[in-house]
Nucleic acid binder design. Structure first.
Lengths: 349, 349
DNA sequence: ATGAAAGCGCTAACAG
DNA sequence: CTGTTAGCGCTTTCAT
């Protein structure tokens, strides 16, 4: 309780300055002196007060994480990546949940400024461009998953088009000829990107995804259930279904089961999110796109650390997805020589 | 960037000392002087450096949150409560995920000590007594959800027995006569507590829960599915099923549907966790016990704040659950005069 | 009511 | 290689 560098210096019989150098491994000094200092520090249980050192060094080794709309299902993975990246520089994360409240957000920004954080990560539930978090903040800011509407900011997010492309490619590999897409609200950029990606994949194989086979709705099991039933009635020839997320896919799987359509034999199914809890216990287990959020978190963390002494590159960077192949659409790349040149799929993590 | 209290003092034409008092609303001073100071601060965009002030005041207005095993499904709610409680005192949360790694945990504790946090919250996925986080930490520690094995520590967790009691009572209200319990591994204290609570409720109504109607397994949909099927085969007379969590309940619901048992008419179903995403889209929607984790978080936060100037009360405190009533076991307290004296149920939040 | 001075715990020049 | 000195930005006696 309250052992300072003075106590250490005194115990090691050196000056405070020498103690400081010794403890931080800076400068040159006799090995035994350093050892004496470290020894004393150890015995006294000395922990340098970082608030004091940050006063002189300018660095706090703390970065803020501001979420605008709570901690969602995606946050834990992202957070894990961020923490791992930051821990390489012994940085800590200060958590701020603004809850869609501008006043609260302003308040947190002030607090982070007062704490002189080394940087800030802004995150949110949707990839859509959102209002920037404030102008002239005295620290670098990186948007993670969510993106800033201002092109001068730096955002790192998921390449949803790539995800959609992967999903459609997987259905094609499975041999599907008529593919439909059941997804969330069209107002989400992620939704539109995934559609676009799926269309690209189909086009690459001389197929298409006509508008009437893209059904926008809600990101929920219910929507998946009813959406799938409606689609089935309308189009008896469907043999592939790409769902906008795993909840929809789960609902769709239930719907298919309820009318005796076998997965994957009669209809192959691909989801999105690789939300293991849901995907793995769907019957059959769900093949689903993984947004690699842990990796996203790592890249965001590393980018922010780099920003401490380098300028941030403005713009939006989109990181690729991968796909977890399970029973609902099990095709592997080797099943068909036509896919021989393909990049390997990433197995279930 | 870097506007200090000196700049403010200078702009307001007062001394640094006066500026400090003015900004913090301390001491007495002429109203117009104070106004001048605040005005200057506003114009310069001054944000007092908290690291500097903590040096003299001793308070950092920061508390650590150490999780031992990642951010689970429960963390977001708990975190929300903690944040709300702390924000009343403008405290911020420093996040540390030790990932079941003792070295990492030690490292984080050192880091938190170096940062001179005002307190620490330790959390984890299970309520079972866990090894204390370290001895002689220079700040108060409160265990949240998880509990410390050391009785000198302060732990606040969920009253699982109460939850089990609520679940069984709800099934009784529904008129169930033969109730079974399908739950997770017996090694969890929460599992045993819930069983005990359910037994108490049944006993209060002259019934019992015999050992062969308590099935221990895994906390998974699969376990729920197969467990329910096995139970059904063994006991044709079951009319109430209490599941150890919502995943099990979901699996059980699927199993019941697959053999044509109607919920709640033939069999009432109660889950645990009130994990809305799952519970609300089960067919029919799940009646389920809510652990009130937001509330738990609040209490933990408030307790820790109080601990800054008061001693912590040692021991384990268990907070009551509530129950979210939905279609799988819809009985209300008014359905039967025998329940007239009951406390009201808490509606679906 | 205001300001000068000392100090919180630590780091970083610069001498010696 | 080590110690002296001078802050970092802020708060807090204690004079005035």
């Amino acid at each position: 309780m309250g052992v300072t560098i003075r106590d250490v210096a005194h115990a090691a019989d050196v000056s405070v300055a020498t103690a400081s150098k010794g403890l931080n491994g800076k400068g040159r000094m006799r090995a035994d002196t350093r050892e004496r200092i470290l020894q004393a520090a150890r015995e006294l249980g000395f922990r340098a007060n970082r608030n004091a050192s940050s006063l002189t060094t300018g660095r706090t080794y703390t970065v803020g994480l501001l979420t605008r709309d709570g901690y969602g299902r995606f946050t834990p993975q992202l957070l894990g990546g961020v923490e791992d990246a930051l821990s390489a520089d012994t940085c800590s994360l200060l958590l701020c949940d603004a809850r869609r409240d501008a006043v609260r957000e302003r308040h947190y920004l002030d607090s982070l400024t007062a704490r002189r954080v080394d940087g800030l990560i802004v995150t949110g539930r949707a990839t859509d461009p959102a209002p920037r978090v404030g102008r002239d903040l005295p620290f670098p800011v990186v948007y993670a998953y969510t993106t800033s509407a201002d092109p001068r900011d730096t955002s790192i997010t998921v390449d949803d088009a790539h995800g959609g492309w992967l999903a459609a490619r997987q259905l094609l590999r499975q041999g599907c000829r008529t593919i439909a897409h059941l997804t969330g609200p069209r107002s989400y950029r992620a939704v539109r990107d995934r559609v676009e990606g799926a269309r690209t994949a189909l086009a690459e194989h001389g197929r298409e995804l006509p508008d009437d086979l893209v059904v926008y709705g809600q990101f929920s099991e219910d929507a998946g259930y009813h959406g799938a039933r409606a689609l089935l009635e309308r189009r008896r020839d469907l043999d592939g279904l790409f769902c906008g997320n795993d909840q929809i896919a789960r609902g769709a799987a239930d719907a298919l089961a309820s009318v005796g359509v076998r997965v994957p034999d009669d209809m192959a199914l691909v989801g999105f999110d690789n939300w293991t809890l849901l995907a793995a216990s769907t019957r059959p287990p769900l093949t689903t796109v993984d947004m690699n959020l842990y990796q996203l978190g790592r890249v965001v963390g590393e980018t922010l650390l780099r920003a401490v002494d380098t300028e941030l590159e403005p713009g939006v960077r989109r990181l690729p997805c991968s796909i977890a192949v399970r029973g609902s659409c099990p095709a592997g790349p080797g099943d068909d020589p036509a896919w021989a040149g393909d990049a390997p799929l990433v197995p279930d993590a």
